[in-house]
Nucleic acid binder design. Structure first.
Lengths: 128, 128
DNA sequence: CTTGACCTTGACACAGATGTCAACGTCTAC
DNA sequence: GTAGACGTTGACATCTGTGTCAAGGTCAAG
């Protein structure tokens, strides 16, 4: 599919899709006419990219996470440099901190809403 | 305490503390000489602000979360406009999405690390 | 009184994510 | 073949969160 369709299906502007490609977060082949060609799987990938970026990860880290996700199934006992592993471990810690912080905020907001006369709204959000 | 001490104790540059104040995320009184005066509780508050911003929340939302947190203990059955409640509900959904996305990425990274020869690193990170 | 550490405000600069626009090529439909 | 929708690249603008610096006030120590 071309960039416009991918944009329609993900809700992400073509401009940003090109930017993500430039940053190495998504890939495309080229048609004879120079148009980008994306695959079905890119729809999911773009959604993941969006979420990760919205969650405060810089593109450079999004790339790492996606790369790891990609080889997770094949290479089950991978070897990597200690430096890389330590970097990942640092990021793991950062991710845990972010999750903890967001969870606390989420609970704060939810508890607040539950105590307003609009508490019915909260019904849908399942506790974790 | 003055801005320098708060900076030392939070690891956040004075420049950013003034910025956060400008954005309404923290408050200070002024001494006679014009110096900002912060309270003990601001140390925690600044840490919270940092975490929330690092988690991708824009300052405008950080303000809302902190405001809610502040009145959570006093006003237990607050009344607010439907529009505000709906906005909060929307943010609640966003927070849940971010948490889910970060959790998935965290698990991806952790599982990867566990399968490398550096798996010993992961020991500290408790599963959630 | 001077020095040095700390504070003030204000400005300018920068990076990352994003919007917008121009100039131009491609393709479909009339 | 021309119009219109869509694609391409490249440039510039904007917003946020930051860093840095200048010009100046405050204050404690020598």
């Amino acid at each position: 599919m071309r960039v416009g369709e991918l944009a329609d299906r993900t809700g992400v502007a073509p401009r940003m899709l090109r930017y993500y490609e430039e940053q190495g977060l998504i890939a495309s082949t080229r048609q004879d006419n120079g148009y980008r060609a994306f695959e079905e799987a890119d729809v999911e990938r773009v959604r993941t990219v969006r979420s990760l970026i919205a969650s405060g990860l810089p593109t450079r880290l999004v790339r790492v996470v996606l790369d790891i996700e990609a080889l997770a199934d094949d290479e089950r006992s991978p070897s990597c440099s200690t430096a890389f592993a330590e970097m990942l471990y640092g990021e793991l810690t950062t991710l845990n901190d972010k999750i903890a912080c967001l969870t606390k905020s989420r609970d704060t907001v939810r508890h607040y809403l539950e105590h307003t006369e609009h508490s019915a709204l909260v019904g849908a959000a399942e506790p974790v």
